[in-house]
Amino acid sequence: MSLYSEKVMDHFKHPRNVGVIEDADGVGEVGNAKCGDIMKMYIKVENGILTDVKFETFGCGSAIASSSMATEMIKGKPLSEALGLTNKAVAEALDGLPAYKMHCSVLAEQAVQAAILDYYKKNNIPYDEADFKCVLCAHEHDEHGGDDGE
């Protein structure tokens, strides 16, 4: 299928960092089954560095590929850097996503933020709400459009 780039298909077929971290320092779940994509992100943090990241995703090809790519992009990075991850960066790293699939990559950005927020809250670490606007306001990003053909 040529709907997706080779990069997307690679991450979709061979997702990196799939699974669960049983003793995670932070867990974030975003999306809902109603809209068709759910992402759950697990993180381990040491000295402000993301030493391990794992994910579980219920969703389409681009949701799974975006989760996989997002984990690769933040693993080993400081929290501050991971918080700067945008869905645009994820989509670009995947060599692009179809326009109506951009919202699936938004979930990846939100899942990372949600997991880090969970870590901050659990450890009573003060945080700047501005860093979490994506998960705290839960606003709608790009939406789908169009209809099936057949």
């Binding site: 299928m1 298909m9 979709f12 077929k13 809209c35 068709g36 994509d37 219920f58 969703g59 389409c60 090809g61 681009s62 949701a63 799974i64 109506y100 699939k101 699936c104 939406e143 789908h144 459009g145 169009g146 209809d147 099936d148 057949e150």
Partner: peptide, 29 residues
């Protein structure tokens, strides 16, 4: 517990051409 588009893509990898009514295949929410 699963979503239809990813099911279709993986079936396609196995040489099976099928269809789904999931949102992500229809292009609507």
């Amino acid at each position: 517990g699963i979503e239809g588009e990813s099911l279709l893509l993986l079936l396609d990898e196995k040489g099976i051409e099928a269809s789904s009514g999931s949102a992500c295949t229809s292009g609507s929410l």
